[in-house]
Design a binder for these strands. Sequence first.
DNA 1: AGCACGCCGACT
DNA 2: GTCGGCGTGCTC
Length: 738
Amino acid sequence: MTSVAGILRVAIAAPVSTPFDYSAPVGLDGPTPRPGQRVLVPFGRGRRVGIIIAMPTASPVPAERLKPVMAILDDEPLLTENDLGFLLWAADYYRYPLGEALFSALPTRLRRAVPTGSGGRQGWRLTSQGRAGCPETLARAPKQAQVWERLRGGSGAVPSSELTADLGDCSAALRALARRGWVEPCRIAPCAVAGERSLADHGPVLNPEQRAAVEQVRAAFGRFQPFLLDGVTASGKTEVYIRLLDDLLAAGGQALVLVPEIGLTPQLGRRLAARLNAALVVLHSGLPDAEREEGWRRAVRGEAGVLLGTRSAVLVPLPRLGLVIVDEEHDLSFKQQEGFRYSGRDLAVRRAQLAGCPIVLGSATPSLETLANVRSGRYRRLPLAQRAGGAGSPTVGLVDIRAQALQAGLSPRLLECIERELTADNQVLLFLNRRGFAPLLTCHDCGWISGCPRCDARLTLHRSSHQLRCHHCGLVRVPPVRCPHCGGPDLRALGQGTERIEEMLSRRFPGLPVARVDRDSTRRRGDLTDLLNAARRGEFRILLGTQMLTKGHHFPGVTLVGVLDADSGLFGTDYRAPERMAQLLIQVMGRAGRAERPGHVLIQTRHPDHPFLRVLLRDGYPAFAEAALAERRTAALPPFSHQVLIRAEASEAALAYDFLRAAARAAAVPFRDQVVLWGPASAPMERRAGRWRAQLLVQSPRRASLRGFLDHWIPVLKGLPTPARVRWAIDVDPQDMT
DNA sequence: AGCACGCCGACT
DNA sequence: GTCGGCGTGCTC
């Protein structure tokens, strides 16, 4: 241990799990170093951006080996001590490199060594030399001339984002003009953003359950308390959120609202903006970088009253956080599936705890984890059992499609019902969780199947784009005209995808407007919103789509919901498959009969007697969940135990296995009675994108035991002689075993 | 992650 | 005899 004045402990943007110590620059003028500021530091023979996480008085590294930081990049800390505490906790919990976890909370530009001033937006203005400059000298530099004109036309400084929006990328031109001394970068002070409450819109009158829910959460303002807003579809959860947000904003707090998918932000955003007297900021990965950065700044400076976003928004610093809302909390999209594998929902709970504020988890189909927390008394349940607006629950029928003459997967009974609803001028929603035309192509002569050469999967036929595509590795091929194996001419597309259903419907009901909603039909930004709006206006008679269509969208004119294939979820390898299937079915069923017209749901299955389906449809989701929880308890599965998955992949299967076997052997004896190791076993999809994948599951009834074990085990794993080309990663609380 | 250092095959 | 393959280890 050495003692030196001015040690900076820095988390570096590199895949290392420990911070590095540097000495503070002495005699260098500039901002005083403080935790939360970014620094530029020498690292190896290069340089790195890092974030000061602490200023210790002593370092384990000898003073003479401490290098001085090269620059302090921010005048003011970007992250407060609280933000740092939260993010460092998250990095530790999910065993992810410190610096990378911290930088994932910052806009991408700030991951590079660009300095920032103390606030405001980055902009450019003319120097006195530039104002006096004559355009003739720019005759041969049209882009520079454009930029110069734009800056001269504006009053004072122009934000970079505006320049880019008007003129495209002008960074090169700006650099050239700066060299001439005509322009200089500057900061532009933010202008206050006013609330946009449309009228004196106070919304509908709350029913007693909604009022009770609002009251309970409001009573918890200012302290940590998780709530489960357990509301059947159409029970008015959003209205409860709005009242709570309104109250919190009136008290001067900031709120964080998380939704599982980008597609849900426009709709909820519009509703919140219309009703709340505060600036709303929307953040998700679908926005351009500049826009994200601007939103991030408004959130961090406290200008945003409400931050609405997808899981990554949980990492954004909010100085006056007073309420967290996680809508559709059961949704698996909250778990990041690569890199920093955090759960947005679980981190939201931790954040609320650190901020000392209530958190509301909303769902019609709560996750078993959350239900277990309700039972243990950690979370408080706020039931909303009544459908708002007096809509009745839909009637549900199972259609046994064994030995039925199907038309593109639709049974006669379903077709009949569709026809009846169409005649009555109603809308129909059909759900099939498979995009493309057909999930495989096969040769009728020799039995060849369109397998992916890089994955254990079939190539899906996309007929409109004339492609065979692998949905797992992205491989694209032109469909063969003759069998690649035997040369036979009789290639057949087997099975149903949304494209094929669409084609069948257009043949069966010529001229009928059908909206297909899947990842292929909503490629571009705004496509989904446009389609959904048109659907809501009644421009389509049939809505056909994948999961996309089921998540939180309202279609008041839909009176019939058809589930084309309920069986795919019944026999999954994952123990969570039934839970997911149940949530999906309940969610899709909730799309029917939301307005004054009663709804019907028809579910096609080849297993009408399957116990899961029967319990779910006869007794409802709560009964299903209770049975599922009982089974989990018996089997000692989550939420009654805790898991960590080590995933390994390599160009050869044996390499991944060897690594995991060595990893299992390296688990020290003292932990053997606290944790159980399962495997190594091959991943459910063993080959993916040309790599062989295996995994090792670690399980313990006690979270603390598991953490203690990992503290010991992970350093050992890192020291293991890793066979060539083996990539491995740790997944804490894995949600998906694929 | 970079980028070194460090031991085994085809070339002036 | 060297140039260079990428395997292993370090960076305050």
